[in-house]
């Protein structure tokens, strides 16, 4: 459902551009009529529909952007750590349902698995034994 906020933002931007164009046209028209008629008191203020369109468009853009932001993360250490332990990767999905790219799990788990000191021969042995027990 990632397209809904994007669609709202896009629509808002289109409306905003349209409102801007309308205002410019209105200004051009108003100045020419003022030149030709030479009458004082002709209304030169912006029509109400253009104002409303501008406000609605701005709000739509804001809503779309807010809806499109990634999920907020806990800012307290213990809450954040608890979320990692409790939810695992499930808790770190973005609006399209994929696990977020910068999700790393517990950043200190490498202190216990220690990839720099990996004993590959032992792992290989254990894996071979496991494979044997699986196949029989």
């Amino acid at each position: 459902m990632a397209w809904i906020p994007r669609f709202i933002t896009f629509t808002g931007l289109v409306l905003l551009a349209h409102a801007g164009y309308s205002a410019q046209e209105h200004a051009a028209l108003a100045s020419t009529t003022a030149q030709h008629s030479n009458q004082a008191g002709t209304s030169t203020s912006l029509p109400i529909d253009i104002s409303i369109e501008t406000i609605v468009a701005t709000m739509a853009v804001c809503i779309g952007l807010v809806l499109n932001t990634p999920n907020l993360r806990p800012i307290q250490w213990n809450v954040w750590a608890g979320k990692i332990e409790r939810e695992g990767a499930e808790g770190f999905r973005d609006s399209s349902g994929a696990v977020e790219k910068d999700y790393r799990g517990n950043p200190f788990s490498t202190l216990e698995s220690r990839p720099g000191f990996v004993d590959i021969r032992k792992q290989r042995r254990e894996f071979a034994e496991w494979a044997k027990s699986e196949s029989t």
Partner: peptide
């Protein structure tokens, strides 16, 4: 299992 993440020790089925 995402391949592009640094990770700790995988279990045997995961490694396979």
């Amino acid at each position: 299992i995402s391949l592009s993440q640094d990770r700790g020790l995988l279990s045997h089925p995961d490694a396979l």
